[in-house]
């Protein structure tokens, strides 16, 4: 996976390969030696290039709050999908307030998880939009009822197509 971490307006490109605890990690194309062991659901022991760090991580409106060496760092993480969406000129947080679900990238709707009239919670999976050989899960921006679905499964949609509407 490729991530972009943004801290104090500084950006770091991070690539993670392999499985825990022996990840292969590069930061801004430099390889780093890392052993990461979870201590609880929100704390880790990290040995990074031989240096031992204890840190705790909690959700934050902008991403995560990482407490390390008395400092609370707010880190925004963008994953591959978000980076791709941005490349196409969309912000993944764009539809969060309205119930309108648009195709953020041109692609093929391969599967719907909901029908008209279904109750959905914020974050529930609505459909899969396939693009660039990647399956993108589109989740509900809010909790409510599926008011209408404007397209059928299996068809290709253009960027910006209104796929469905969720009513609070």
């Amino acid at each position: 996976m490729i991530f972009e971490a943004i801290i104090d307006e500084k950006s770091i490109n991070i690539s993670i390969k392999g499985t825990a605890p022996n990840f292969e990690i590069t930061c801004d194309n430099k390889s780093i030696d890392l052993d990461c062991q979870p201590l609880s659901s929100h704390s880790y022991s990290l040995i990074l290039n031989g240096k031992s760090h204890f840190l705790s991580i909690h959700d934050h409106p902008q991403g995560y709050e990482v407490t390390i060496d008395q400092h609370n760092n707010i880190v925004t993480i963008k994953d591959e999908q978000q980076l791709l969406l941005e490349k196409f000129g969309f912000s993944s947080s764009e539809n969060t307030q309205t119930g309108k679900v648009y195709a953020q990238i041109p692609g093929l709707i391969s599967q719907f998880f909901v029908n008209v009239g279904d109750l959905v919670k914020e974050g529930d999976k609505l459909l899969i939009l396939e693009a660039m050989k990647m399956e993108n899960e589109i989740v509900s921006p809010l909790s409510g009822v599926v008011k209408n679905i404007n397209v059928e499964s299996g068809i290709a949609v253009e960027k910006g197509t209104l796929i469905m509407e969720i009513k609070e």
Binding site: M1, I12, C27, Y44, L46, H53, L55, I57
Partner: peptide, 15 residues
């Protein structure tokens, strides 16, 4: 600690 924090957040997000 910026680099460490960034890597940790990315791993946590991955997890």
């Amino acid at each position: 600690c910026i680099l460490t924090a960034g890597v940790a957040a990315a791993l946590h997000s991955n997890n």
